[in-house]
Design a binder for these strands. Structure first.
Length: 492
RNA sequence: GGGGCGGUAGCUCAAUUGGCAGAGCAACAGCCUUUUAAGCUGUGGGUUCAGGGUUCGAUUCCCUGCCGCCUCACCA
């Protein structure tokens, strides 16, 4: 207790002394219950509509206090709005008025009762007849005018950020609306929401390094999931035809403005669909979420006007690479030929170990930056898509039915015509494990349990993954993922 | 991991060539019956991120470390 008090700075000491004065008067500075009849928003709206209100009881934080002798103006902020309060010494009594001035601080929770009036300047104001302390605040809140700007404090003490920066609060309100809209859309289209294991004996479903943990009683290592894919597909084997999960995935990789070690992913699978089904779904999903958050499909992202109205343009990866770099990946459909072509065209591209990765690199460097409006990029190399079916046409044997949607260098979604041939899937796993042996830490491990599931039959299926944090970034015009995650990972 | 910028009062920020560490808000003691970044008078408040070095003297210059932001690389 003494060491707690010793850590308080001078302002906190003053507030503590006030707390003790409340106690000395027999008042609990942290009372158990509150009586509240209206929110600030309800009060303002009702008065504006001309409804007569009396005996209004509000509860919230005292965020400003302007005292002038025998009267004081204040502002109370609750979760809905802020409203001005007027305290008159003659209305509340001299003794009570003195406690307001002496023993309340900015940030304290206060309960007030009174009549709604309009002041000289026209502001709707609660003229207080009675008030009480609801919770004493020991630490001062950030300064009202400049607010809280220090990025580190904003993230580490997000509650202060939410209190003093209204736009921050709005981002997280929008985030909630977006996720609700996503659920509503999927629910209304017959998808069943499920929960699959976060703690897994074998991770999979994506290219990433996992977090490893340990189960003591079982005495074995476990992994935090990097994707939901393989468990959701087991549910398709089990006869659930439309299924989705919105959940945290974990990837043990670098942290930057678009990567957080834990992030929110939506994955959904639709039996008897394919990747074109998923294209329709993803563009409709973005439209529904944008309407819910912004009321429009015309949004601005980092100064660019983006139109989310379906349908979005579609193009093959081959055509986009051809148009932007001059390389036809179907004509040079193996690594030596592709490398030779790059050399002939004098294209400066980092060398990659496989044709598929080289193609992906070409796409990232030349094509992806040109995609401003949301665009479906179709037909990816098989080597970087171990869960997608090969395309049936003979134009190029090395591509699969997969798309990613891009806008402004952001991936909006990733979908496949899902591979359901257990032998082919096994061969892909074996190929991945070779890349693993060759040093690729993100290559996929062989999952025999999943193969066994496929052996029991999975229907033809379209599957989609959407990074929810990235979607929220796009729909709230934020350039950093940390601005859309309440408590982003920082060094500790 | 490389490069750049930054860390000063509760908050937002200053500090000349290396020369007593400051302002506004907040706090404290007062005045004030229509304010709203209220106003006025007065007062207190600092491990200048941490540690080391150079110097008569370091917020300032040098080294190491911690933390944050930007950027490149890695990575989807």
């Amino acid at each position: 207790m003494d060491d707690f008090l010793a850590r308080l700075n001078d302002q906190e000491q003053h507030r503590y002394q006030k707390t003790q004065r409340w106690r000395a008067r027999g008042v609990n500075p942290y009372p158990l219950r509150v009586s509240r009849t209206h929110t600030a928003r309800q009060t303002l709206d009702a008065f504006a509509r001309g409804e007569a209100l009396s005996g209004v009881q509000l509860a919230g934080r005292l965020i400003a206090l302007r005292e002038m002798g025998k009267l004081a103006f204040a502002h109370l902020q609750d979760g809905t709005a802020k409203i001005q309060l007027l305290f008159r010494k003659d209305a509340v009594g001299a003794e009570n008025y003195a406690t307001l001035v002496k023993d309340f601080d900015l940030g304290d929770f206060i309960g007030v009762e009174g009549e709604i009036v309009r002041t000289k300047t026209g502001e709707i104001t609660l003229q207080v007849t009675r008030f009480e302390l609801l919770a004493k605040t020991l630490s001062p809140l950030p300064e009202k005018w400049h607010g809280l700007k220090d990025t580190e404090t904003r993230y580490r003490q997000r509650y202060l950020d939410l209190l003093s920066n209204e736009p921050v609060r709005e981002i997280f309100v929008k985030r909630s609306k977006i996720i609700t809209a996503m659920r509503t859309y999927l629910d209304e289209h017959g998808f069943l929401e499920v929960e699959t294991p976060v703690l897994q004996p074998l991770y999979g479903g994506g290219a990433a390094e996992p977090f490893v943990t340990h189960h003591n009683k079982l005495d074995r290592d476990m992994y935090l999931r990097i994707a939901d894919e393989l468990y959701l597909k087991r549910l398709l084997v089990g006869g659930i035809e439309r299924v989705y999960e919105i959940s945290k995935d974990f990837r043990n990789e670098g942290i930057d403005f678009k990567h957080n070690p834990e992030f929110t992913m939506m994955e959904c699978y639709q039996a008897y669909g394919d990747y074109t089904t998923m294209m329709t779904l993803v563009e409709e999903l973005y439209a529904a979420c944008s309407l819910a958050a912004n009321g429009t499909l015309q949004i601005t992202y980092q100064g660019h006007a983006i139109d989310l109205t379906p349908p979005w343009p579609r193009a093959t990866m081959r055509d986009l690479i051809l148009k932007t770099s001059g390389v036809d990946i179907y004509a040079d459909a193996d690594l030596p030929a592709l490398r030779q072509r790059l050399a002939e065209l004098n294209l400066k591209v980092e060398a990659k170990p496989t044709w598929g990765k080289q193609v992906d690199e070409l796409f990232s460097v030349f094509a992806e930056p040109t995609l401003i409006q949301p665009t479906f990029v179709m037909d990816y190399p098989e080597e970087i898509s171990p869960f997608a079916k090969k395309k049936p046409d003979t134009l190029c044997a090395r591509v699969v039915e997969r798309f990613e949607a891009f806008s402004l260098n952001m991936e909006l979604g990733n979908a496949f015509t899902e591979l359901n041939d257990p032998l082919d899937q096994y061969a892909r796993f074996v190929e991945q494990s070779k890349q693993r042996d060759a040093g690729d830490k993100e290559a996929h491990p062989v999952d025999l349990d999943f193969i066994e599931a496929l052996m029991h039959g999975m229907p033809p299926t379209g599957g989609l993954g959407v990074g929810v944090d990235r979607m929220v970034m796009l729909l709230t015009d934020q350039s950093s993922i940390r601005e859309v995650i309440l408590f982003p990972q920082l060094r500790t």
